[in-house]
Measured scan of single mutants.
Amino acid sequence: NQASVVANQLIPINVALTLVMMRSEVVTPVGIPAEDIPRLVSMQVNRAVPLGTTLMPDMVKGYA
């Protein structure tokens, strides 16, 4: 099963993503693939993302 990107903490809106904010985990439904974590660094989410939430492509500005 493919690992997805999961919030490692509350990720506020309009804050640049850092490695420490994200972890990889096998979850259902599948979200952004874990291998895209380096690409996500410095991008921003378009809504607050609670701890443990799977990041979906539509949550990250400029990802999709």
Score class of each variant (00 low, 15 high):
63 Y>M: 05
15 V>D: 07
29 P>K: 05
24 S>A: 14
4 S>M: 02
40 L>F: 01
12 P>G: 09
44 Q>G: 05
3 A>W: 10
37 I>E: 01
41 V>T: 07
17 L>V: 04
15 V>W: 14
20 V>C: 13
23 R>I: 04
45 V>K: 00
36 D>E: 12
4 S>K: 01
23 R>C: 04
7 A>L: 03
62 G>P: 05
49 V>K: 02
31 G>I: 02
41 V>M: 07
43 M>D: 03
49 V>R: 02
51 L>I: 15
36 D>W: 08
20 V>K: 12
39 R>P: 01
3 A>Y: 13
60 V>I: 13
29 P>W: 03
51 L>R: 11
56 M>N: 05
59 M>Y: 09
6 V>K: 03
15 V>K: 12
12 P>H: 08
52 G>A: 07
57 P>W: 09
22 M>S: 00
42 S>L: 11
59 M>C: 05
50 P>V: 06
35 E>Y: 10
3 A>V: 08
3 A>S: 13
33 P>T: 06
33 P>K: 08
51 L>S: 13
29 P>Q: 05
28 T>H: 09
28 T>I: 10
44 Q>K: 14
34 A>P: 06
55 L>F: 14
18 T>K: 07
25 E>S: 11
58 D>W: 14
56 M>C: 05
47 R>P: 02
13 I>E: 15
22 M>K: 00
25 E>T: 07
27 V>L: 05
38 P>N: 13
35 E>N: 10
55 L>R: 01
15 V>H: 11
40 L>H: 00
50 P>G: 07
44 Q>R: 15
34 A>T: 06
8 N>Y: 03
62 G>M: 08
25 E>N: 08
58 D>C: 13
39 R>W: 07
5 V>N: 02
21 M>Q: 04
5 V>S: 03
63 Y>A: 04
37 I>V: 06
44 Q>C: 12
2 Q>N: 11
2 Q>M: 13
1 N>Q: 14
23 R>V: 05
35 E>F: 09
58 D>G: 09
10 L>F: 14
44 Q>S: 13
9 Q>P: 00
28 T>Q: 08
64 A>W: 05
42 S>R: 10
55 L>D: 01
11 I>G: 01
38 P>G: 11
43 M>C: 06
61 K>P: 13
26 V>E: 15
27 V>M: 07
14 N>S: 09
64 A>V: 15
1 N>C: 12
37 I>T: 08
47 R>Q: 12
15 V>I: 15
12 P>S: 14
16 A>P: 12
63 Y>C: 04
20 V>I: 13
26 V>S: 13
41 V>L: 15
18 T>G: 05
2 Q>D: 15
11 I>T: 00
61 K>N: 12
44 Q>D: 04
53 T>S: 08
60 V>E: 01
20 V>H: 14
19 L>G: 05
41 V>N: 04
44 Q>I: 09
35 E>H: 10
19 L>Q: 09
9 Q>R: 12
20 V>L: 13
64 A>F: 06
47 R>D: 06
44 Q>Y: 15
62 G>S: 09
51 L>N: 13
64 A>M: 11
16 A>H: 10
26 V>M: 08
20 V>N: 15
14 N>H: 14
43 M>G: 04
27 V>C: 05
40 L>K: 00
16 A>Y: 11
11 I>K: 01
37 I>F: 03
4 S>G: 05
11 I>P: 00
21 M>D: 04
